[in-house]
């Protein structure tokens, strides 16, 4: 498995005594032309807006009054003394860690089950994937109904004599609910990625391990996991990045409550910028979000050498 920054496999033959348009120059031109649309898109639709966000963060911007005044580091100072930021970051961490752990384990578990040679796995595959295609808003609204105190989930628990909690209304369970709703929505995607990876594991390796007398768990641990580790890394990065952007679920299900127990960073910056009209401060917070994503990804990237298996 070759990953991101490793060298491309193409080997360009050294050009002879060529005129100006050497192979190398031609390749450089072709390369630039081919990445040009993508690069231009990223510059125009990501980097320039990001630069503007930095610019806004140095201003006090009252949208209603139409005033836009330079305040220097005021917004950054305000952030340092914002007592709400601590709990918000804690909720963000809780949500992301909870979601990533649950999502990856469930996805892998389901993928392993579906990778057994059984009839009907196609049906199950489709069923597990189906929430992915349901509009997020609709999915969230439906779960909002089901998680009510007198909703479907508690009615179901009642069948077993369990008196279910008031899911969306107490600090602990509200966070659990938001995580679980997101989990079932998107775990199908990771499951399919894992399934694809599992199907790429050569059967001979299992055979060899079996002959060596390895137990099922040992085979999973020593053969499967290392071989699919690049996929684990990819899904982990995608899920973490996605979890930091969770928004509609919070907005529909809890609005950040009860208390501020489910106010994650994206929701908080949305509140500050769009609801409280502190655009400058919202921009400052969004830079924090960007930095967090950046650092997390970089850390995982560095750590990949430790545990991601490379084919020889």
């Amino acid at each position: 498995m070759t990953l991101l920054l490793d060298k491309p496999t193409s080997r360009v033959a050294p050009a002879g005594k060529a005129p100006y348009w050497t192979m190398r120059r031609r390749d450089t031109l072709a390369g630039w032309l081919m990445v040009a649309p993508q690069l231009a898109g990223i510059v125009v639709f990501v980097l320039v807006p990001l630069g503007l966000v930095v610019w806004y963060s140095l201003h006090e911007w009252n949208v209603l009054a139409g005033t836009f005044n330079f305040v220097g580091a005021e917004n950054y100072k305000a952030m340092a003394s914002d007592a709400r930021l601590g709990p918000v970051l804690r909720a963000t961490g809780l949500f992301s860690v909870g979601l990533v752990v649950l999502n990856l384990s469930l996805a892998l578990f389901l993928a392993v089950l579906l990778n057994q040679k059984l009839r009907g796995t196609v049906v199950f595959r489709t069923l597990f994937f189906s929430p992915v295609v349901v509009t997020l808003v609709a999915w969230t609204i439906v779960w909002g109904f089901l998680l009510q105190d007198n909703g479907g989930v508690n009615a179901f628990l009642n069948l077993f004599g369990i008196d279910g909690p008031n899911w969306l209304r107490s600090g602990g369970t509200a966070m659990v609910s938001v995580i679980v709703v997101q989990l079932f929505k998107n775990v199908g995607l990771n499951m399919v990625l894992f399934l694809a990876a599992l199907q790429g594991v050569p059967a001979e390796l299992y055979e060899a391990a079996r002959i060596d007398g390895a137990s099922a768990w040992a085979r999973f641990r020593r053969v499967t996991v290392p071989l699919i580790s690049p996929t684990i890394l990819l899904t982990m990065i995608l899920t973490i990045v996605g979890s930091l952007q969770v928004f509609a679920q919070i907005a529909v299900l809890t609005q950040g409550g009860p208390g501020t127990s489910t106010t994650v960073l994206v929701y908080y910056l949305y509140q500050q910028a769009f609801q409280f009209h502190h655009f400058g401060y919202g921009a400052t917070l969004s830079l924090v979000l960007f930095l967090i994503v950046l650092v997390l990804t970089a850390v995982q990237w560095r750590m990949r050498r430790r545990w991601v298996f490379h084919e020889a």
């Binding site: 630039w32 032309l33 040009a36 649309p37 690069l39 231009a40 510059v43 125009v44 980097l47 320039v48 630069g51 503007l52 610019w55 139409g66 836009f68």
Partner: peptide, 24 residues
């Protein structure tokens, strides 16, 4: 190369356009 230059120019133009307040 040319395209990136164009992109950079567009970007600069946008910066100016977006920076100078709205609704005038």
């Amino acid at each position: 190369m040319k395209k990136t230059l164009t992109a950079a120019l567009t970007a600069a133009a946008l910066l100016v356009a977006a920076g100078c307040g709205g609704g005038s």
